[in-house]
Design a protein around this nucleic acid. Structure first.
Length: 230
DNA sequence: AAGCCGGGGCC
DNA sequence: GGCCCAGGCTT
């Protein structure tokens, strides 16, 4: 009996096949956002993660262009007036907390000329940078494979393979390992594919299992998880 | 481990 | 009306 903290070889094969299938699925069905554009710079790729926290990507999509126009760099964001920033963020929600987060990370980044540490342990002290944003930094600035492991990616992995043991995503070793394995090749493409798949098919409420490209191998589907069948 | 932030979309 | 959303911070 394998340790519950460890991803088994069988689970790794499942995840490898899942990554392949979701990449294929996303080529046709994936979403297109401005921050995924080849034009997007590291500032935009990192700052958007703060905008996306607890916020739908659709809402950020209608906001992103205006934000980067008003605050085009870490330096200009760092020197923003707090009240102006709060007012600008208001339609997006979480505006007080988010203004503080953005100012904090911008001041740090401006000080370091936009360079974040390559050691994720050093990210702990940076405002607004938790495990998720840390992984985004590792991927987008340092080219290191890292999972954008949020509630959505967690849901996909848990349904497809098995549920995690711990309540907190960040403390579940098995889930962490599974997510890293899932995105180890073509991390950008797979990360975005998984997030798109989670948002469009493997939704938290009423998942569209009948339209799912991987339902045949999904443990959640095989257990009859979706009662209304899409 | 749980509560909090927050407006908007969706049921 | 309640739930959810590319989390992080505080208690």
């Amino acid at each position: 009996m394998p340790s519950p903290d460890h991803v088994t070889p069988g689970e790794k094969r499942k995840l490898t096949r899942l990554a392949k299938d979701l990449k294929h699925w996303a080529k046709v069905n994936g979403r297109d956002f401005p921050w995924r554009s080849s034009e997007a710079n590291t500032y935009q790729q990192v700052v958007v993660e703060v905008l996306l926290q607890r916020t739908t990507a659709a809402a950020v999509a209608g906001f992103f262009e205006a934000f980067v126009a008003k605050y085009p760099s870490w330096g200009q964001l760092a020197s923003a007036n707090v009240e102006d920033l709060e007012e600008f963020l208001r339609p997006l929600g979480l505006w007080r907390r988010r203004a503080q987060s953005l100012l904090g990370i911008a001041k740090y980044a401006a000080e370091k000329e936009g360079q974040f540490p390559s050691d994720p342990l050093e990210h702990r002290q940076i405002p607004a940078v938790g495990q998720y944003v840390s992984n985004a930094i590792m991927q987008f600035q340092h080219g290191q494979p890292a999972p954008l492991l949020d509630v959505n990616m967690a849901r996909v992995i848990e349904r497809f393979v098995r549920p995690r043991k711990l309540a907190d995503i960040r403390h579940d070793k098995w889930l962490q390992e599974a997510a890293h394995w899932l995105v180890r090749q073509d991390p950008r493409e797979v990360n975005w594919a998984v997030l798109d798949f989670a948002a469009l098919i493997c939704r938290s409420r009423s998942p569209l299992c009948t339209s799912c490209p991987v339902s045949a191998r999904c443990s959640y589907f095989k257990r009859g998880g979706n009662a209304q069948a899409g």
